[in-house]
Write a protein that binds this DNA or RNA. Structure first.
Lengths: 258, 258
DNA sequence: CGTTGCGTTGAATAAGGTCAAATAGAGTGG
DNA sequence: CCACTCTATTTGACCTTATTCAACGCAACG
């Protein structure tokens, strides 16, 4: 079977922030069974022998340095990825250079579903901070899914969830005004942090105002103004990328206004 | 096994436009093998015994009268649907009544993928004209997919395609100006008609200006103005819902402007 | 032949984008 | 440790675009 990452030459080793040399791809056996993210990851609900088999499929990890791409549009599709640590953004580009961020992925999120249809990835995925993903070769996943019903179901659920998530974003992009979009974004991030055991009330954004704007269909200045307005209204306290939610109900009200 | 449509009482029979009484749900054996849409439908690439089995899964059809819902958000999810004839729109609603059309489905398109994640549908689907769908009970589909690799692959592709389609729409909603959105919409429709063997050059829209606008994140007046402008520029000829493309390259240019 | 729903068009308005300048940190090198 | 640079962010003034509100036209239908 073809190695998952053979298509893009990778440096043999990188130096991490702490100075430790790290292989970009590690064939460390993955212990899904002891992974804190399991409940929201693909192996969710899989136990015993089946889990052992899935651990065999998820046989490698990959580190991605901040600013590097996990993959680019046009790259051949071989694997799905589960975020272990770090933050990613996914985005699509037009010929004429416009960019639309389609999502921000955090630990527990799945990346790569855009590649199944055409055997090539259709979007770009870039690490917003040093990150690590579990690599799940699609061919093996597909094979295992034939005799692990929960795995098949899990895969389908993942894809369906992504479809529904995108519909929510379309609703936002199509019908909400600028302030409502930003409020919805902050509340959504807050919820996702909470789901992962982090504080729902305060967090650091991993993306720039421009990246937020691209995701929300707004210019960076508009995002900045919305945030300043929320601060004037005492709904949040924001200093650059640090955000503290002061009045969640107030934010909700902003989301639903007009 | 639970009947697919037991959850919503259906009238026993309806009178069709031609006066023939028609059961809403027909247990007519479906001949995927002789269906003209097979190449773009789920059974694509499946042959022989496997195709016979899939035909056994797709055991019923359902008619939907113009204006009726195929399903509503919150309905329990049991089946995927393949459009045989007619046009649908799918849409999501906010609590406060805003609506976002998320897609228009024509023959050969798949409907229902939004329901897998949560066992309930997340969006509404309404027939824009009298229509007929093939009903594919999901539980049986899932079971057959375990031993028909092409079926599993087909299902995954369908979902991935939907994810990518929605990303394209997000790009449109997030980055394009009004005229560009309308041009992109017309060109996309044209392409889809062509894929199905209809004229790429002239067609009748099945949706109102308001529905187009909802899909494109615009008000109906804005859509109408864009169409009038294209007509002034001799890019199209439009009379209400009849559209004839006069200058496809010109439309493409509109799509890419600014 | 009026009614009704849908589509078109015009004028005024509001929202967000554009351009430009000021400010604040983070990182760099002396 | 400090000055300097670079980049991200904020803010203001102005402009473009799409929305809103309103009127009118057209076609289908009872």
């Amino acid at each position: 079977m073809m190695p998952v990452l053979a298509t893009r030459p990778m440096p043999a080793a990188r130096v991490c922030l702490d100075g430790t040399p790290q292989a970009s791809v590690a064939r460390v056996p993955n212990a899904c069974s002891s992974c804190g993210l399991r409940s929201m990851c693909l192996p969710c609900g899989i136990r015993g022998e089946d889990l052992a088999e899935v651990e065999g499929v998820v046989y490698s990890r990959r580190r991605v340095v901040r600013g590097d791409n996990l993959y680019r549009a046009g790259d051949p599709f071989h694997a799905l990825y589960a975020v272990r640590t770090g933050f990613f953004k996914s985005f699509v580009l037009t010929d004429d250079g416009r960019t639309q961020v389609t999502g921000f992925q955090m630990p527990g999120d799945m990346i790569g579903l855009d590649g199944i249809e055409d055997d090539r990835h259709q979007q770009h995925v870039e690490a917003l901070e040093n990150a690590e993903v579990c690599v799940m070769p699609y061919a093996e996943l597909e094979r295992s899914a034939t005799h692990i019903p929960r795995l098949q179901r899990g895969l389908h659920r993942m894809m369906s969830r992504e479809i529904v998530r995108e519909q929510g974003l379309m609703l936002l992009l199509g019908t909400m005004r600028a302030d409502a979009r930003v409020a919805a974004f902050l509340l959504n991030l807050s919820q996702r942090f909470a789901d992962r055991g982090y504080s729902a009330r305060e967090f650091n954004l991993r993306m720039s105002r421009e990246e937020m704007g691209s995701y929300l269909g707004l210019k960076l200045e508009t995002v900045s103004r919305a945030i300043s307005r929320f601060q004037d209204l005492k709904l949040i306290c924001a200093q650059h990328r640090y955000i503290r939610l002061e009045d969640v109900d107030g934010l909700r009200a902003q989301m639903e206004r007009s």
